[in-house]
Design a protein around this nucleic acid. Structure first.
Lengths: 129, 129
DNA sequence: ATGAGGGTTCCACTCACTGGAAGGTCAAGG
DNA sequence: CCTTGACCTTCCAGTGAGTGGAACCCTCAT
């Protein structure tokens, strides 16, 4: 199948698929006319990557996960290590954002939000601890 | 003062400060030798931007906030609108990450993480709903 | 034969910096 | 006076993960 069909099946933009080939995540064959030819196996791989990306795994993570996925003798511990490291990163990001959120929420709550120029948000940004 | 001193006071890398000048966030004066000259006022502005960035405001947000900060007749509602929009974005990001986190946590929990090749994480990435 | 709707490559842009190279300036020490 | 080292300058390139667009090629139906 051509890239458009593969894109539809994998639920990814064609641009993204070309990009994935560019960085060596996938290597579809080529037709005599130069068109990429995708087998079910390629689509399967694209789906895999799409799902991993949706879970926030980096491209490098995806590359490693793909390699493990294709290595029938892999140890599940290796996969788990990648997933756990990612989980730690997500937790850190959530904590970071939650801190921001609370501060920002306080600021928004304190601000009258009317036509007057006095604004606690700007005041705080001026002198925030 | 020179850029190094300003960087120290504003707690920002010199590279970042030059970048902020580049995109027109700040406009320090210049000495005869071509060195940037920072007044307290400039450092104050850098601090303001640094804090807003630490709260996750985009550069464009910072530009708008700076303009409002310097406009003595601004309406606090304008500031509040920016902050509230940002708050909504942060909430969305947190929700997104929390969803990822939970899915990933389930996967990690299900995986034995030993030397055997059977791995629920990969299985799920293969067929995730 | 022509037009629509695929496909191809390549280049530039995003965001907010960061790193490095090549070179100018300045204060202190020998 | 000269050198050394710390500081400053500009410009170019790269990051991650794509996205947008231009210019061009291929195929199929009419």
């Amino acid at each position: 199948m051509n890239i458009g069909t593969a894109a539809e099946k994998a639920n990814l933009p064609t641009k993204t698929i070309r990009y994935y080939e560019d960085i060596g995540l996938i290597t579809p064959q080529r037709d005599v006319n130069g068109y990429r030819v995708f087998r079910d196996q390629d689509v399967h791989k694209l789906n895999f990557v799409g799902r991993a990306r949706a879970l926030g795994f980096s491209i490098e993570d995806c590359r490693n996960l793909l390699a493990l996925w294709e290595d029938k003798g892999r140890a599940s511990a290796d996969v788990r290590a990648i997933a756990k490291a990612h989980l730690v990163q997500i937790d850190a990001k959530i904590a970071d954002l939650s801190g921001m959120r609370d501060t920002l929420d306080d600021l928004v709550r304190d601000c009258a939000g009317d036509a007057r120029p006095d604004c606690p948000i700007l005041n705080k940004l001026e002198t925030l601890a």
